[in-house]
């Protein structure tokens, strides 16, 4: 299964054509056909078809149910940076109310365009490592919320490596962990990124469509996070529910 890639770095023209095709699908809008793309780019048909099939195989584009129209696939969202999101005053008040209830750090992350961005890290605590959170989502409670929502979480995980002795790195174990997250609507990691820190996160879902828009997390000492924490989780869920209409 190691056939050479149809495009290599030595084919700048092909790479350029692929980018033009992507751009054309964006500007023409969903439903544009191969023939239309080939005509408007003045690109040979066979080349256009080959590039389109490649972009579909890589999931940057999708074919619509009529099989002749194209649209941007979800993976294309990852090419763009998510718009810098800030919380509204109303939402910030809810988060601050949660912060007043606990000595632990309370962070809020947005999952727009399938990327994790901290929209409201706790100002009174050390901020989580945003770069690591984006690159190694499987080792964070917030990251696991996002992964658990995917049809195939592997698409969002580039490399899996251990940070501490506790980091879950086996594919099947991660799979089980994420299934549990999806089932319980609760993600937890204890000392998997830093020995002494752990995290609990619950999803914030759009009130109308139930789609995952953000997550709210509690970060604290590993040993304490590992406890059942029923009371504080109930509180966290409560605040997540109040945030839902303000974020979706």
């Amino acid at each position: 299964m190691t056939a050479p890639l149809p495009l290599s770095g030595r084919q700048p023209k092909a790479v350029r054509s692929a980018l033009h095709v992507l751009e054309e699908v964006v500007s023409a809008g969903p439903g544009v056909t191969a023939k239309e793309i080939s005509e408007s780019l003045a690109m040979p048909q066979a080349t256009t078809y080959r590039i389109l099939n490649l972009l579909v195989a890589e999931e940057y584009l999708v074919r619509l149910p009529d099989l002749s129209g194209f649209a941007l696939g979800r993976r294309a969202a990852r090419l763009a940076l998510p718009a810098a999101a800030t919380l509204t005053t109303a939402a910030r008040a809810v988060v601050d109310h949660m912060r007043a209830q606990t000595r632990w750090a309370v962070h809020v992350a947005s999952f727009a365009a399938e990327q994790i961005s901290l929209v409201d890290p706790d100002p009174d605590h050390p901020a989580p490592d945003a770069g690591a959170l984006a690159r190694f989502p499987y080792a964070f409670a917030l990251g696991r919320l996002l992964l658990a929502e995917q049809a195939d979480w592997r698409a969002l995980v580039r490399d899996v490596r251990p940070f501490t002795a506790r980091t879950v790195t086996s594919e099947s174990e991660l799979d089980r962990t994420l299934k549990a997250v999806a089932r319980d609507g609760l993600a937890r990691q204890c000392g998997e990124f830093r020995e002494d820190r752990g995290c609990i996160a619950v999803p914030i879902r759009g009130p109308r469509d139930g789609r995952l828009v953000a997550g709210i997390a509690l970060a604290g000492p590993t040993a304490r996070i590992a406890e059942p924490n029923e009371e504080i989780i109930r509180l966290l869920r409560d605040h997540a529910a109040r945030l839902a209409p303000l974020l979706a």
């Binding site: 809008g29 969903p30 696939g73 979800r74 294309a76």
Partner: peptide, 11 residues
Amino acid sequence: ADVLFPHRGAA
């Protein structure tokens, strides 16, 4: 759910 719509972002 597989399609990215220009005016709505990821569905």
